[in-house]
């Protein structure tokens, strides 16, 4: 067994357990064990379990985002300090101070790359399970040779789950289904990204150079997905698609109910709550203080001696 295979082995084992578990469940309630839809629903079940297992991570992220409200004034202070400074060193210093504030107050809103890293082996594990099944090999655990065979050859709308857009065995239906799925995947990815960028970013984040880069990628990425999507078996694409839909729904709920402070979505939520009378309208006085705060110079002015101060004010004739 090669290194990659060894790393993937436990993951494949768990994937097979979940897949076969769901397959048994669907069969038990009367679905055709050899039908594509039964296997597709098993894949959907796999997605649900994987994404549900990642919910605690997500909840933690939301909790710290709520705590962000408390540190918002301090965060704003940092952002004001570096307002209009685009050079690399100011940017770095700003990220540094922001990160130090997060740590001090325990409000780090970022989730680290672990959730992403965890999903990748699952994706490749599923790919590998399907690939083995296609070559008539039994899985590493629960997926017996018969089940693997049934999985790989089961058909949905007349297209086998193991087929890819490129390796379609001369079946035009595979190409049609794959193309539709690539389109759906691209669309869901696009919508998810777009709703984050359009609604759930604070004005400060929108002014960062990172944002512009992301904006360009928003339009390039779908192309990348479309190109890479043609090489995956339909079964793997079902996993990807379902996962994308989950992300989209999750993102929608979060943006609606727990938006990033200061973003468009946060304003919309406040307006909604005010309409329902659940939130007192902002008092005019608080608005005024914020305006005054914004007028403060970014950096402390040098103290000026009494005599010089007189001269300066005298010179301006005000």
């Amino acid at each position: 067994m090669d290194i990659l295979g060894t790393i993937l082995w436990p993951i494949k084992w768990v994937i097979e357990l979940i897949l076969v578990g769901f397959h048994t469940l669907w069969t038990a309630i009367g679905m055709d064990p050899a039908a594509g839809i039964t296997w597709v629903l098993s894949i959907v079940g796999l997605v649900l379990i994987v994404r549900a297992a990642l919910i605690p991570v997500f909840v933690r992220q939301i909790k710290s985002q709520r705590k962000m409200l408390e540190v918002a004034p301090q965060l704003k202070k940092i952002q004001d300090k570096y307002k209009g400074k685009r050079d690399q060193f100011s940017r770095e210093a700003m990220s540094r101070e922001t990160m130090a504030l997060y740590k001090k107050t325990g409000t780090n809103p970022l989730s680290s790359c672990l959730p992403l890293l965890l999903q990748m082996p699952i994706f490749f594990g599923l790919f590998s399970v399907l690939n083995d099944a296609q070559h008539d090999k039994a899985g590493v655990g629960m997926l017996s040779r018969d089940l693997a065979d049934s999985f790989a050859n089961s058909e949905l709308f007349g297209a086998p789950l193991r087929a890819t857009f490129l390796d379609n065995g001369g079946n035009p239906l595979v190409m049609v289904i794959a193309a539709v799925m690539v389109l759906l995947m691209t669309a869901s990815q696009f919508i998810t990204q777009l709703q984050i960028m359009a609604k759930n970013m604070s004005p400060e984040a929108k002014n960062s150079p990172m944002f512009r880069q992301q904006k360009i990628l928003l339009y390039i990425l779908p192309l990348v997905f479309a190109v890479s999507g043609v090489a995956f078996p339909l079964g793997v694409m079902f996993y990807w698609l379902t996962s994308n839909f989950w992300t989209m729904g999750q993102q929608f709920l979060v943006i609606r109910n727990m938006p990033t402070p200061g973003s468009e979505a946060a304003k919309a939520r406040e307006a909604r709550l005010q309409k329902r009378g659940k939130l007192a309208p902002p008092e005019p006085s608080t608005g005024a203080t914020i305006v005054i705060e914004e007028k403060k110079p970014a950096q402390r002015a040098q103290p000026v001696g009494k005599s010089r101060a007189k001269k300066q004010s005298g010179g301006k004739k005000r």
Binding site: R96, L110, M210, L217
Partner: peptide, 14 residues
């Protein structure tokens, strides 16, 4: 990196 935006809990990022 830009595909999934800023996610790192540290500065500098991983």
């Amino acid at each position: 990196s830009p595909l999934y935006g800023d996610v790192c809990r540290y500065y500098p990022s991983c």
